[in-house]
């Protein structure tokens, strides 16, 4: 019984991290129509920035490190969009391959700087300990991850549904040419959303670091998860990303516990089902 509850808490925590990863991926996909194949790299590079800032030599506060890392990745993401992807405006396939090439560069540069050893920062002092409810222990830190993910999900939802920027993003997701005609600067929007996606992924990478640790290959593990979540939930849909993230979080942890050999493969099963039965994703609209 406790085992299952622990698994459930872990699942929700992983789901929260996956949401931070895939919300940006989904928005970028919805708006720019490309899967950003360097999204896993954003997550990993952000996490490496974070662990460096948390390291004894700098010793930054945990949340400050997460924010600084997210800001740094926002700048990097913005630059990539503005100076590389923009050159290939409208050519979706070359854009995708460009992000793929950049992901290899980032992976190797990270290996050069941070070596092949895993980095695992300690859980911040004030977040250690467990919450005891009815004889079951919940680690504070996992709960905090979930809380942060929920706060960010609500913030994103408020932004997309209630602000002018959100209205522009929705218009762009629906129909970029029309959005351009009605005077929305779609290209600036692209840069902004790409930067936002990078920042969210990096933020997720840092707060996930005490839990997942950071190591070479983390990017290649996270990217397919984002891909699955978005194929599951439907592109450009935040709700889809949220539901997909928690679904994958549960599947990953329970799969790991029950069929350790096949846990990774099990992750892809719902994606395959969705592809066969509902290709536009659970919450996606049919693109016409």
């Amino acid at each position: 019984m406790t085992l299952w509850l622990t698994l459930a808490v872990n699942s929700i925590a992983l789901g929260g991290l996956l949401f931070l990863l895939s919300a940006g991926f989904s928005l970028i996909f919805g708006l720019m129509r490309i899967p950003n194949l360097m999204h896993g790299s954003f997550f990993m590079l952000g996490a490496y920035f974070g662990v460096t800032l948390l390291d004894n030599r700098i010793g930054m506060n945990f949340w400050a490190a997460a924010l600084v890392s997210a800001l740094a990745m926002a700048v990097i993401g913005g630059l990539v969009e503005r100076f590389l992807l923009r050159r290939l405006n409208g050519q979706e396939l070359p854009q995708v391959l460009l992000t793929l090439g950049l992901s290899f560069i980032i992976a190797d540069v990270c290996l050069m700087i941070w070596t092949g050893d895993p980095w695992q920062p300690p859980t911040p002092d004030h977040l250690r300990g467990v919450l005891q409810v009815a004889g079951v222990y919940f680690p504070y830190f996992r709960l905090v991850i979930v809380l942060v993910a929920v706060v960010i999900a609500v913030a994103l939802w408020l932004m997309v549904d209630w602000t002018r920027l959100g209205a522009m993003i929705r218009a762009g997701v629906d129909d970029a040419p029309i959005a351009r005609v009605v005077g929305i600067k779609v290209s600036q929007l692209f840069t902004l959303v790409f930067a936002l996606g990078a920042a969210l992924a990096a933020f997720g990478g840092v707060i996930g670091a005490p839990y997942l640790s950071v190591y070479p290959g983390l990017d290649a593990e996270m990217l397919p998860l984002a891909l699955i979540v978005v194929i599951l939930g439907g592109t450009g849909s935040l709700l889809g990303a949220l539901v997909g993230s928690f679904l994958i979080g549960f599947l990953y942890n329970f799969g790991q516990a029950m069929f350790p050999d096949l846990a990774y493969v099990i992750l892809f099963l719902p994606m395959l089902l969705v592809l066969v039965l509902r290709p536009q994703g659970l919450f996606g609209r049919v693109m016409t």
Partner: peptide
């Protein structure tokens, strides 16, 4: 197009997952 690319990427990862994890 892009959808084809994404699905083949995911399917390729499944094979990788089997090779790597199905000890």
């Amino acid at each position: 197009g892009i959808g084809f690319l994404m699905i083949t990427l995911a399917l390729g990862q499944i094979v990788w997952g089997i090779a790597y994890r199905w000890q």
